[in-house]
């Protein structure tokens, strides 16, 4: 980048003033854009030296996508869909989901030289947790994934180029609280395809929608269909005719915890509203068990009632006995 700037600067300076110094007599080096002035060459080189600190930003994000063992097919398909949406992602083999998985995953991240990770952890063949991790310094966010629909579903009729860079839309309530801000930044870094990535295609034909509703992050992916004849301009009034077609997948992320490190570290945030699916299931079970408890309760109550209000002995009980 810096080199290119040097060259474009050169002719302007050369045309600006013919400096009567010693280097003027020597024939300047010829470049594609004209003659390169050695005197002016020294100056940008110096500026490039201190310009290195403000080198143009380049996004070198690499995302490792992997899942735990014994993941169900539905969640695996979701993972594959996410993988197909992120051309800058690498897939790795399944990881055993146990206590020491954090260190194993950190090692893996280093090995594959990835700067972030999406780890799909399936537990009890039912619950899917998603770890969103920045490596190596952290932080990491753990989500519970709900309402999963994969791209496979035939109701989602859209389609788009594989590897085209998505537009990311966020609802404004991401900026309200610090933890949402952090989540937004992480999502931006992980889900935005780096500019000029070698697998990325130079067109924009799909859009991701991330919005927070009811304390959950909802994800949608839409294809953009807009009338156009040229590649740098939409037809007149085309923006009003623009329609979106859903491509999928769909999922809903419920944040559980935010940790300071990658796959671990101090806990910085805990979702106060979070109830683990295990608890919910236990409650449901207890609700069913409540049926029997109710019966027992009613029986006991009846017994107590009978004991308290004993019937008076019937005075006519003996009436017909004698005959």
């Amino acid at each position: 980048m810096a080199k290119k700037r040097k060259r474009t600067d050169a002719p302007a300076e050369a045309a600006g003033a013919e400096k009567p110094d010693d280097s003027a007599s020597a024939r300047p080096e010829r470049t594609l854009f004209g003659f390169k002035d050695p005197a002016s060459d020294a100056e940008p080189a110096a500026s490039a030296g201190d310009g290195a600190a403000v080198a143009p930003f380049r996004n070198r994000e690499k995302v490792l996508i992997t899942c735990s063992r014994r993941i169900t097919y539905r969640y695996r398909h979701l993972m594959q869909d996410v993988l197909s949406l992120l051309p800058h992602a690498k897939k790795d083999s399944k990881v055993e989901s146990k206590q020491s998985k954090g260190s194993a995953l950190n090692e893996l991240l280093e090995l594959r030289s990835c700067s972030s990770c999406l780890f799909f952890e399936c537990r009890k063949q039912k619950d899917l947790y998603l770890w969103m991790v920045k490596s190596p310094g952290g932080p990491s966010v753990k989500f519970l994934v709900n309402a999963v629909h994969t791209m496979e579903e035939l109701k989602l009729t859209g389609n788009h180029l594989k590897g085209s860079r998505p537009l990311l839309t966020f609802s404004t309530n991401f900026d309200e609280q610090p933890h949402w801000k952090l989540v937004k930044e992480m999502i931006t870094q992980i889900f935005a395809t780096p500019k000029d990535h070698r697998k990325a295609k130079p067109f924009h034909d799909h859009v991701f929608a991330f919005s927070i509703v009811d304390g959950h992050v909802w994800f949608r992916n839409y294809q953009i269909s807009v009338p156009h004849n040229e590649i740098d301009k939409v037809d007149k009034g085309g923006l009003d005719k623009m329609t979106l077609i859903e491509v999928g997948p769909r999922f809903c992320l419920n944040p559980i915890k935010i940790f300071g490190g990658s796959f671990g570290g101090p806990t910085w945030y805990e979702n106060p509203y979070y109830i683990s699916p295990n608890q919910i299931r236990a409650l449901e079970k207890r609700q069913k068990a409540g049926k029997y408890a109710k019966k027992v309760k009613a029986k006991v109550r009846r017994k107590m009632h009978e004991m308290e209000n004993t019937l008076e002995p019937d005075e006519f009980a003996e009436l017909w006995k004698g005959e």
Binding site: F57, N59, R165, P166, L167, L168, T169, F170, S171, T172, N173, F174, D175, T188, A192, P194, K195, H204, S211, V213, D214, H216
Partner: peptide
């Protein structure tokens, strides 16, 4: 590099 857009959803949405 980011391609991010913010959008105000307005009033609360019933989930």
């Amino acid at each position: 590099h980011k391609l991010t857009i913010e959008h105000d959803q307005g009033e609360k949405i019933d989930v």
